[in-house]
């Protein structure tokens, strides 16, 4: 408890001036470069070391994204991701499939021509041009500067227009009262919710829960804007796909081997 109190006094609620911010950026750049140079850490230039200071606002410098390799997922692997999301964010299956929330789901695919079958995890694709954000009347649906698409439940009126607009069916509406929410994942009746890319973890410099639960290399999380990140390098070097690329929404979540 003492440590908590110390933290409280330590943290200064000063507004970060633009000069400060630029300085921090420089600092971050330096540390990223250092990481990139360190042997064995070259590709995964992401971790606790890059966590932004708690008092610093997110910026457009980063754009968080995911690369999901469908070939590396069995049905059970996808389910493990779903379970990890449920545990992390406190939503669950209550036996009402039509109204239960589903932040992430297993989509089973069967190619009509080749009869090939596989499955993959599907969730909010964190578009650069999110239709849900365009249609939201109050601005509750918004995209953070670092590309994470969220619902500000404080001003969500529950009109569900974003659910009509989302091409990925990524959103659910909270149909009943819920209790004992996770303290880092507030969710409540009458508002719309979806995958937050575990924003509370990302802000601490950690990976989303599903990425941790996925088989090694099946899900890569990282900064699309950081050319040295494993994610950016993979996207540069291997064939990746966007779901509904025809809509030109530039999703932050990309797939391989669909």
């Amino acid at each position: 408890m003492i440590s908590l109190k110390q933290d409280q006094t330590k943290v200064k609620e000063t507004k970060v001036t633009s000069g400060d911010e630029a300085g921090r950026r420089e600092f971050l750049k330096g540390s990223a470069a250092a990481l990139a140079l360190a042997p064995g850490m070259t590709l995964f230039a992401y971790g606790e070391a890059l966590a932004k200071p708690a008092d610093q606002a997110v910026s457009t410098k980063s754009r968080w994204g995911l690369l999901i390799d469908a070939a590396k997922f069995s049905d059970e692997d996808v389910d493990a991701c779903v379970k990890a999301c449920q545990d992390e964010n406190g939503w669950s299956d209550t036996g009402k499939p039509l109204t239960d929330p589903q932040w992430i789901r297993r989509v089973n695919l069967k190619n009509k021509k080749t009869e090939e079958q596989f499955s993959l995890p599907m969730m909010c694709q964190h578009c650069a041009e999110p239709p849900c954000v365009d249609v939201c009347p109050t601005g509750a649906s918004f995209k953070r500067k670092d590309g994470i698409v969220l619902v500000d439940k404080h001003i969500c009126i529950g009109c569900r227009y974003c659910m009509m607009a989302c091409p990925y069916k990524a959103r659910s509406f909270v149909h009943e009262h819920i209790e004992d929410q996770k303290e880092h994942a507030p969710r409540g009746i009458g508002t719309v919710e979806s995958c937050t890319m575990c924003v509370h973890l990302v802000d601490e410099g950690k990976e989303p829960a599903c990425v941790k639960a996925a088989p090694a290399g099946a899900m890569v999380f990282g900064d699309l804007n950081d050319k040295t990140s494993k994610l950016a390098q993979l996207i540069k070097s291997v064939a990746t796909q966007q779901v509904r690329a025809d809509l030109n929404l530039d999703p932050g979540v990309r797939y391989r081997n669909i």
Binding site: Q102, N108, N111, K112
Partner: peptide, 8 residues
């Protein structure tokens, strides 16, 4: 071109 199923 795919047959799609899920719990959602």
């Amino acid at each position: 071109g795919m047959e799609v199923t899920s719990t959602f």
